[in-house]
């Protein structure tokens, strides 16, 4: 499996660069394996909890794409912090063309 680089901007602004993210993995798995702060993935990637909420960097939105209907509804449970570029990162499978992807961890909806 080939590897790509992905940058997470954590809630406090700290950047975490992962250089060995596997194509085919979902971003939540990469984040939790690398202890990215604020990405919890409590439902195990089932699109059911909204605890892996990220904002996709504007430069990458067209590559990553938007949420489908199911993800859209789950995102609605965190609508206080939702933005147009919000995604649940358990629903994004890494592809070759995402090398260099940059995402920001969304704050908790409090």
């Amino acid at each position: 499996m080939s590897e790509i680089t992905i940058t997470f901007v954590e809630i406090g602004g700290t950047e975490k660069v992962i250089t060995d993210a596997g194509v085919g993995e979902n971003i939540m798995q990469v984040a939790t394996a690398n202890e990215v702060a604020g990405i919890l993935g409590e439902c195990g990637g089932g699109c059911a909890c909204g605890t892996c909420h990220i904002y996709v960097d504007p430069d990458w939105e067209s590559v990553v794409g938007g949420p489908n209907d199911v993800e859209d509804m789950t995102l609605d449970m965190v609508f206080e912090t939702r933005k147009p570029n919000s995604r649940l990162c358990c629903q994004i499978e890494l592809a070759e063309n995402m090398d260099g992807l940059r995402v920001t961890v969304a704050p908790e909806s409090l």
């Binding site: 919890l40 409590e42 439902c43 089932g46 699109c47 059911a48 909890c49 909204g50 609605d76 449970m77 965190v78 609508f79 206080e80 908790e108 909806s109 409090l110």
Partner: peptide, 21 residues
């Protein structure tokens, strides 16, 4: 209300209700 989704009815963390959906 803006933060309804942060309720704890299903729990939080690793034991969050598996059947929530």
């Amino acid at each position: 209300r803006g933060n309804t989704g942060t309720h704890v009815a299903f729990g939080v963390g690793i034991h969050r209700c598996i059947g929530a959906s």
